[in-house]
Design a protein around this nucleic acid. Structure first.
Lengths: 98, 98
DNA sequence: ACAAATGTTATCAAATTTGATACCCTGGTC
DNA sequence: GACCAGGGTATCAAATTTGATAACATTTGT
């Protein structure tokens, strides 16, 4: 019997409905922040350089990317960010299994 | 030689950079509205029923789904809508070709 | 045609995000 | 140590979205 992995733990935990509920909302925003940063770096830009492109300030970019940020950005904000780092934003409604 | 189709026209038009630029931003929001409505219907809900689930009013749902709506909704608004119709929201940064 | 259900639009106050400014922190370099 | 680049945080006014209400329009069913 192999030792339980993190994925095992995750799969188990997600059985609990209250955990699953949190997980769904968490991943969406978390994955977004990750993609923001990831694609800015991929474009070789600092927060300040990106800010200039978007005609705003670096502090605002930082707020957007911040993990502990309590704000839910507007769709247009994310869209402009994406365009500035050479990406296209795709949004999908994926039906829940169960 | 077959008659030019709409897709032919579309492909041709998208060669023009200024058209392409508009297209990119248009499709993102347009495709969103379509998915909102499509998935609400798929869930068998009226705007009023969905409004009740989200603790709001049907007029607000209509505004969200409205094609000529000038507003760019918050991400959390779309996320809650998705959850209410039994979906998970997925957001992807897709690198531009070229 | 009528009534009921569903969807749309306008408007206002309340809530939230955004832009700008200022300031702090860390790592690296001199 | 002093300096700089890059990033983070707090705060305020300005801009925008959201919720609620009311009235109007459209579709559906009988």
């Amino acid at each position: 019997m192999k030792r339980p992995t993190f994925n095992d733990f995750k799969r188990k935990a997600l059985q609990k409905p209250e955990v699953k509920k949190e997980y769904v909302t968490l991943t969406a925003t978390y994955s977004l922040r990750k993609q923001l940063i990831e694609n800015r770096l991929k474009a070789g830009l600092t927060q300040e350089e990106l800010a200039k492109i978007l005609h705003t300030k670096k502090s605002n970019i930082s707020r957007l990317e911040s993990v502990n940020s309590k704000i839910s950005p507007k769709l247009s904000t994310i869209e402009e960010y994406a365009k500035a780092v050479g990406c296209k934003l795709e949004i999908h409604f994926v039906p829940h299994k169960n």
